[in-house]
C-alpha cells in the first residue's frame, strides 16, 4: 500500500515532500498510464503520491522584466492549455504544446509534468531546450535554478531531489525571427513523436545573432549542440547557405537514434537531418 497526500499549499507540499518523499502528481496524465493496472484495481504506484495539481500558488503564467531581459515565468501547475493560450508563449513552444495529445489531456497535463517525465520524445522539452528554459526548483528553505539541459539527465531521469519540487519554468523571451517546430508523429493528431525538431534564430545587421537547433526522440535526451550552433553565429544568409552541407554532416554525428515500436533509427536520423536542412535553407533566405 502507498499513502497519498493532498497539501493545502505550496509550503505544506514542500514539507510533506521533505518528510515522506512522495511522488508528485499534477495532471496525472503520464503517471496514471504508467502505473495502470487491471481496471477496477488500484494503480501500481511504487511510492506514496502527493497531489499538487490543485496548488493555486503555482497556477500562473507571468512576464518578469529585469535589466534588459524579459522572462516568461510559467508556474509549476500551469497546464498545457494555459501555456498554449498565453499570448507571450514563444511560438515554437505553443506549437509543441498543441501537438501533444488532445484538448482534454492538455487541460489536465502540466508543462512541469511533461518536463519531469523527461521523455526524450517529450514534445515540449524539444522546444524548451531551444528556448534556453530554466527550471526553478524549491525545497523547504531553499531554491535553485537550473538550465533544462542540466535538469534532464537521461530518459525519465532528472536531478530533482527527493525533497524538491519544480515550482516554475523560466523562459527568457528573446527576439527570434525564424521559428520552426515540427513534430513527426505516428498520425496527425493524438500522436506520440517519432521525432521532433525545433529551430529558433535571429539576425542582427544581416548576420546570425542567435540560433538554437534541437531534436527530440533521436537520442536518450533531446539533442542540442551549442558547440555546433556557435559555428553559425555571425554568418550571413549566403554564407550559411554555402555551409549547409557541412552543418548537416556535423549534425549527423550527434544524432544517434534507435529503432523502436514507433519508428526506425535510419528514418529518424534521415528525417531529423532533412528537417534541419529545410530549416537552414529557410533561415538562409532571411536576413
Amino acid at each position: 500500500m502507498v499513502d497519498s497526500y493532498r497539501p493545502k499549499d505550496l509550503k505544506d507540499a514542500l514539507s510533506i515532500r521533505a518528510e515522506y518523499n512522495p511522488q508528485p502528481l499534477a495532471g496525472g496524465t503520464d503517471l496514471m498510464v504508467r502505473y495502470q493496472s487491471w481496471s477496477g484495481t488500484l494503480p501500481l504506484f511504487t511510492k506514496s503520491v502527493m497531489f499538487v495539481g490543485h496548488l493555486k500558488e503555482m497556477k500562473y503564467i507571468k512576464k518578469e522584466a529585469k535589466d534588459k531581459t524579459v522572462t516568461l515565468v510559467i508556474g509549476g501547475t500551469a497546464t498545457l492549455t494555459d501555456v498554449a493560450n498565453h499570448p507571450d508563449t514563444p511560438v515554437v513552444l505553443k506549437e509543441a504544446v498543441l501537438s501533444i495529445a488532445a484538448p482534454a489531456l492538455r487541460n489536465n497535463a502540466t508543462l512541469t509534468g511533461n518536463i519531469c517525465n523527461a521523455s526524450p520524445a517529450g514534445d515540449s522539452i524539444c522546444a524548451l531546450y531551444a528556448l534556453d528554459a530554466v527550471i526553478v526548483i524549491e525545497k523547504s528553505g531553499s531554491r535553485r535554478e537550473v538550465p533544462i539541459t542540466e535538469f534532464i539527465t537521461g530518459p525519465g531521469r532528472t536531478i530533482l531531489g527527493p525533497d524538491e519540487l519544480v515550482t516554475a519554468i523560466k523562459i527568457p523571451l528573446k527576439a527570434s525571427s525564424v521559428n520552426d517546430f515540427t513534430k513527426v508523429g505516428t498520425r496527425r493528431a493524438n500522436a506520440l513523436s517519432k521525432l521532433s525538431f525545433t529551430g529558433v534564430a535571429d539576425y542582427k545587421n544581416g548576420r546570425i545573432d542567435s540560433i538554437a537547433l534541437t531534436f527530440g526522440a533521436v537520442g536518450p535526451t533531446v539533442v542540442r549542440s551549442v558547440e555546433l550552433e556557435k559555428k553559425l553565429i555571425g554568418l550571413s544568409g549566403p554564407e550559411l547557405k554555402a555551409m549547409i552541407p557541412k552543418v548537416i554532416d556535423d549534425y549527423s554525428t550527434v544524432i544517434v537514434p534507435i529503432d523502436d515500436q514507433r519508428s526506425t533509427a535510419v528514418y529518424r536520423k534521415k528525417v531529423a537531418l532533412n528537417l534541419l536542412e529545410k530549416y537552414l535553407k529557410e533561415l538562409s533566405s532571411h536576413e
Partner: peptide
Amino acid sequence: FMQHTMADYTIPTSLD
C-alpha cells in the same frame, strides 16, 4: 505484438 497500446497501435483520426 510490439504495438500493443493505443498510443503505438494508431488508427486514423478524422484529421488523418
